[in-house]
Design a protein around this nucleic acid. Structure first.
Length: 321
RNA sequence: GGUGCUGUAGCCAAGUGGUAAGGCAGAGGUCUGCAAAACCUCUAUGCGCCAGUUCAAAUCUGGCCAGCACCU
């Protein structure tokens, strides 16, 4: 416990300036960046996912960005494993790992140190359940789950097909209740001496107008061409095709809706997403909130980091504020 | 000036005498293997305004106001 590695985490809803802040902090704290974003992992999907550009990186190393072909299936389990190795590696080189992203599930897996290694995905079982789901509906599956693991079923709304399916799948595969699974995968304490930084705007309206503006910016940077590519490959880009920024434009490519209304839908979807992200981050234990875009945010984060982890030479130079 | 139509939440909208559907937006939330996904909860003491009829009016009657359309 005494020598837990330090970890700086930067999160917040879309369009709050995570990228710029994280690069600045990496330069100041001698850090490297580990991306925690479920869509920026994919190669080629750059404009729509607001991926860091090479110019924005300013020489700072970035990991787990732009490294997977868009047709690859991916999951938190794989992410957690990769991120863990990546963080360990950065730490071993005497640098500070800075995890940056907006995917709550991914962030949580790192911060809590969840161990997903127990079992492989059983695709045949999943497909089998999927078939039952489409034939019988959710209810029978939910009832089955309730009979097997009442506590787990109680926590999942019967309408939530995705979660009911997964919970039942996991039970049938392992024969263990959710509680048992949780206790086996969740360490007693957090693995890192983490400093959690959340970015948000002072007012929700301000956040929303920033998001709208950024969508326009994406359009100007060639979002349409990128979306077209995703549209043309939508059958193969299983996960990537559900990214916000592309699927909203599909009706336009299909000739079913004018571009303007698709853009409006895209902005709307982004705003809704930002709200969901906020819900997640607000409830992460130990979160420190800072104002998006404020000039003193960078200094304030450095100060917080030093206060939490101490002024030391750990990252190649004496940190001072 | 006349005639007609319309007026229900921020937006769309159902409701023709029995105590305000639904959708979107908005707010809050759930979260351990597709998560930028999936799902849940909440949100009109009030139907343009005023008066009247009635046990009961968003619904019927009259007047007024506003918008739209057409006519002169």
């Amino acid at each position: 416990m005494a020598d837990k590695a330090e970890l700086l985490v930067i999160c917040g809803p879309t369009a709050t300036g995570k990228t710029a802040l994280s690069v600045a902090l990496a330069q100041r704290l001698n850090g490297e960046i580990v991306c925690a974003d479920s869509m920026q992992i994919y190669r080629g999907l750059s404009v729509g996912t607001a991926k860091v550009t090479p110019a924005e990186m300013q020489g700072v190393s970035h990991h787990l960005v732009d490294f997977l072909p868009p047709e690859t299936r991916f999951s938190v389990a794989e992410y957690a494993e990769l991120a863990k190795k990546c963080i360990a590696d950065i730490t071993a080189r005497g640098k500070l790992p800075i995890v940056v992203g907006g995917t709550g599930l991914y962030l949580q897996s790192i911060v809590k140190g969840i161990d997903f290694s127990q079992q492989e995905t059983n695709f045949s079982l999943r497909n089998q359940l999927q078939e039952r789901l489409s034939k019988e509906g959710v209810k029978p599956l939910w009832d089955e789950l309730r009979a097997a693991d009442p506590a787990c079923a109680a926590a999942i709304h019967p309408n939530n097909r995705v979660r009911v399916l997964r919970a039942l799948e996991l039970y049938l595969q392992t024969g263990k209740t959710k509680a048992q699974q949780l206790s086996e995968s969740l360490p007693a304490e957090r693995p890192y001496r983490d400093v959690l930084v959340g970015l948000d705007c002072a007012a929700r309206e301000a956040l929303y107008s920033r998001i709208d503006a950024r969508v326009e910016e994406m359009l100007a940077r060639g979002l349409l061409a990128e979306a077209r590519l995703v549209f043309d490959n939508r059958a193969r880009y299983v996960t990537a095709a559900q990214a916000i920024g592309y699927k909203e434009l599909f009706p336009y490519f299909e000739g079913a809706a004018p571009l303007a209304s698709c853009v409006a839908a895209l902005k709307q979807a982004s705003r809704n997403y930002a709200k969901r992200q906020l819900t997640w981050f607000r409830h992460m234990e130990g979160m420190h909130w800072f104002l998006s875009g404020a000039e003193d945010t960078e200094d304030a984060v450095v100060k917080l980091f030093i206060e939490t982890c101490g002024e030391r030479k750990a990252h190649g130079k004496t940190l001072s504020y």
